[in-house]
Design a protein around this nucleic acid. Sequence first.
DNA 1: AGTGTTATCCAAAGCGCTTTCAATTACCGG
DNA 2: CCGGTAATTGAAAGCGCTTTGGATAACACT
Lengths: 344, 344
Amino acid sequence: MNLRDLAVELGLSQTTVSRALNGYPEVSEATRQRVLDAARQHNYRPNTRAKALATGRAMAIGHVIPLSTRTEMVNPVFADFIAGASETYMRHGYDIVLSVIGDDQEDRVYLDMASKRMVDGVIVQSPTVDDPRIALLRKVGLPFVVHGRATDLPDDYSYVDVNNKRAFQRATEFLVDLGHRRIALVNGRERLGFAVRRRTGFEAGLAARGLAPDPALMLTDEMTEGYGYAAMRHLLTQEDPPTACLSASAIIAFGMRRAADEAGVRLGRDFSLITYDDDLSFFRNSGDEAIFTALRSSVRTAGRFAAEQLIDLIGDPGTPRQRLMEAELIVGRSTGPLRHDTRP
Amino acid sequence: MNLRDLAVELGLSQTTVSRALNGYPEVSEATRQRVLDAARQHNYRPNTRAKALATGRAMAIGHVIPLSTRTEMVNPVFADFIAGASETYMRHGYDIVLSVIGDDQEDRVYLDMASKRMVDGVIVQSPTVDDPRIALLRKVGLPFVVHGRATDLPDDYSYVDVNNKRAFQRATEFLVDLGHRRIALVNGRERLGFAVRRRTGFEAGLAARGLAPDPALMLTDEMTEGYGYAAMRHLLTQEDPPTACLSASAIIAFGMRRAADEAGVRLGRDFSLITYDDDLSFFRNSGDEAIFTALRSSVRTAGRFAAEQLIDLIGDPGTPRQRLMEAELIVGRSTGPLRHDTRP
DNA sequence: AGTGTTATCCAAAGCGCTTTCAATTACCGG
DNA sequence: CCGGTAATTGAAAGCGCTTTGGATAACACT
């Protein structure tokens, strides 16, 4: 059933039917009702492709989710981020076009999306410190919102980000105030903007309390459970091991906890751990008391904001839309004051 | 830059340019080269929408990822599944259209996709025991491949599934053979096909060894870390607690391990745990020796198979394509023989 | 020279929709 | 009862591509 069939069936022109369906004013209420009823009855939906071609708007947003070329891993935050964005898209009638692509070929995908005219805008995930996609997208004139920020580029594009620097600075100061002096950072890969900002915040927090960072306590890698495990083992076996640590994701923290358990180190008593927590749905850090003391910021909410900003931007591509979210510091069971007695 | 511009620039007709680009034979090699060069030089890509409209093929596959209405959770396996499928799509020039939708409205989305003609086929995720989508999709004539299977419907549709029954039966027998008699099952929600099959396998395993299932040891809920934790606590505090358990996902198993650690119960010694393991990239159950004894089957591979079958099916919608994968039983550190002495 | 054949190219229709421009009808005040 | 305005509807062009059904030129063969 297409528009013409429907028009014939109703004894009307395609023009009128189209107008009735799209809520244009120049059609009488009586006919509109008639059209609407017939459309519902026949379960008619306009052909997306034809509509897109005629209007010049694809009513679709592109999401590119990068696949780590090294570890073949897809970061689970994307699922929650898209779930958040999706609510907004749905309300506005947008679809999502997804590409999963090695993180070394993303540029190509964005160029493709732009020249194939298949989306009205895109979300850029996990920007690197000097992400080339930003300049690229601007050049081809495709509206975009970045989830996160680059660090070495001027902030004159649209983004949704968490104030990572502030969050990690606060958490670091919190640990120092508990008496800890040797504090480690188990970070994500530092070619990514957010990881750099977290390290900067960490260092700023130490500096604010008159401490200097120890490079031996600053680790960086892909954020997997296995990495957390390895990192914790590595930290615990140093000659002068840290007594506290900041982790860049709950998944890392879980790995660290596993290593701690194995070593007989109890979190919150023998070792303090604060983790960044994206509030992933299948991995809630909550309960009567949070498992981990954490910097929490919902990646799902970020998805919603990004989607809203992008749709806004598509409607009026003027000034960039920017939003910085603050992470909450949730005190849970994985932190405590420095103990001066020996380990059990 | 569109086809006409390109044609004008080359002094050729759109027809010829189109043919040259699409590899039709009735164009001379000389002109084809000329066209190809010009296209590359201008970074020309055919407009997807126009092409889709003209050919009647959208060159896109629909994936619907269900959002649990109860817990607002999106199962992280979807990310890996899509990553797997994506490789295949990419090779064949297909895009992915994604919908994230409450699991009570999925029917509507599929109907929409069908009538809006925006995809050439769809993947059906997480089928319930008598999933209505199967009949629906067949009715509207949209090619589909199911990831998993229903249980109460005839198996006459295309699917990719793991032999869940066999896997859980084997694992159960493995535990019994280690001496365990009271074995628990921490399952997913049993309105889902795979969960029912897993329970069936579990019961079959017990029966094969002359044991009867104890309903008090069979739990079912959404597969989150928190559920695993709660389930383990619940099991350990029973008057006659189980000595072993089967878990339906690695994420559940992690929650169970947390509860075990807290209770001073050591996995592999005091309590044996076998988990189903989707081999998620950010959560590898491996290392020198796997953390968990596990039934492993890569969800990513399943994604690849499903994509291949769907593309095949679109090309020739004849007999259903079906594929049953076997899960490996990997012996790791979370299982051991029943100990008859008291707990430490 | 006339007739097929083959290789190469093109004009135009059509995919299903929106939208411009024009036509028709109804209505109103003078 | 008429000119003018508003309300309602339609015909047709166009979005960017594919594809059908020729057209033209080149060539070989009788």
